[in-house]
Computed example of a mutant assay.
Amino acid sequence: MATTVDRLLPTDEAEALLQLTREIATKELAPQVDELEEQAAFPVDAYRLLGSSGLLSLPFAEEFGGGAQPYEVYLQVVEEIATAWPSVAVGTSVHSLTASVVDGNANDEQRAHWLPQMLSGDWLGAYCLSEPQAGSDVSGIRTKAVRDGDEYVVTGTKQWISNGSCADYYILFARTSEDAKGGLSAFVVPADTEGMSFGPPEKKMGLACDVTTQVIFEGARIPATHLIGAEGRGMRVALSALDAGRLGIAAVATGIAQAALAHAVEYAGEREQFGKPIGAFQGMQFLLADMAAEVERARATYLHAARLKDAGRPFSRQASIAKLTATDAAMRVTTDAVQVLAGNGYTREYPVERLFRDAKVTQIFEGTNQIQRMVIGRDLLR
């Protein structure tokens, strides 16, 4: 098919990983997606399959059970998953984000204790940063963690938490002092912690299988040994992790756009009007060409940022550019895919309607695209 992705991968091992991902996405994930998205069911079996296949641990060191793959390879795996099931790709990205917090900031003993379970596929993580009154403004976090002997007592509410009540552990950001920027700290919180509860799943426009809930802490006691790094480093930890997380969402958005393009091209080659396929009309060819250019541009931006990250170079601005570019592209491409399918595209009988709904939130989470523009502008003027 003309819409097959022509990838340039760094090794034969990476080629094999992408082939494995494509097979799993096509044979195992895609046949379930419509039914489970209608049910808004948490896809636990999908995550177990990805975990047992080694696809939840790719960008981490082998000593902890990781795949030791470059970030550019991991992101292309996420994109392939997203072409079949965007909700699962988002969950995969969030899980990697949580593990990266531990990998990059915990001490050696904590990494040795937690990372093997996080990377085995037995544990799935959630990232507890946003609150009802603190989304893009991380300094506005109100959840408090008060030291009491060998424990912290946590009180507050987190909002919009992907994997919500379904995760096995939570990376929590809470206030350990009143200092707006230097008062946040990060913790690992097991799912069975007393005093932690969950709101009902949000009834969302799209990504129904990405179960999203409030996480509520009412005097929850967390061992002091679960503090990641030192007190007061939470702001730095959160923002550095989000750079990598934004690339995950850029890859998800690119996968959504790629899937929409593929469906539109297939439909344009089959649907006939005025005695010939609609793809034979120049107007339709131009529309499809613009869609393809959007997808290629999105992929190029996230790969450039990932390669900077792999090289150990600064990539924060490029991560924001990738997130902005790819998610705006996903919205435009899915909108145009609905238009290509016309009336059929507006029905749930065809997948482009779901992809259109799934695309919208990519412009919102992991920092709205307006925030990304602020990040980019400030970096340029620094």
Rank of each mutant, 00 (worst) to 15 (best):
G51I: 03
P59E: 13
Q39W: 10
L29T: 03
R48K: 11
L55G: 11
E28Q: 03
A40K: 06
G54D: 13
V44I: 09
R48H: 08
L55C: 14
Y47Q: 05
A46G: 02
A46Y: 00
G51K: 00
E28G: 02
F42D: 05
L29S: 04
S53M: 04
R48N: 05
V44M: 07
L29K: 01
Q32K: 13
S57W: 14
A46C: 09
S52V: 02
D45P: 02
D45S: 09
L55N: 12
A61M: 15
S52L: 00
P59M: 14
Q39K: 14
F42M: 02
G54H: 12
P43R: 09
R48I: 07
K27F: 03
A46H: 05
S57L: 13
E38F: 12
P31S: 01
L56T: 13
E62Y: 13
L58T: 12
A61C: 13
E35L: 11
S57Y: 13
E35M: 10
E62D: 15
E37R: 09
L29R: 02
A41M: 05
D34R: 08
F64S: 11
S53I: 04
V33S: 07
S57P: 14
S53G: 06
A61R: 15
A30S: 07
E28R: 01
E62K: 14
E35V: 04
E62W: 15
K27A: 06
Q39V: 07
A61E: 15
F64T: 10
L58S: 12
D45V: 03
P43N: 10
E62F: 12
E37K: 08
F60I: 12
F60G: 11
F60Q: 14
T26W: 04
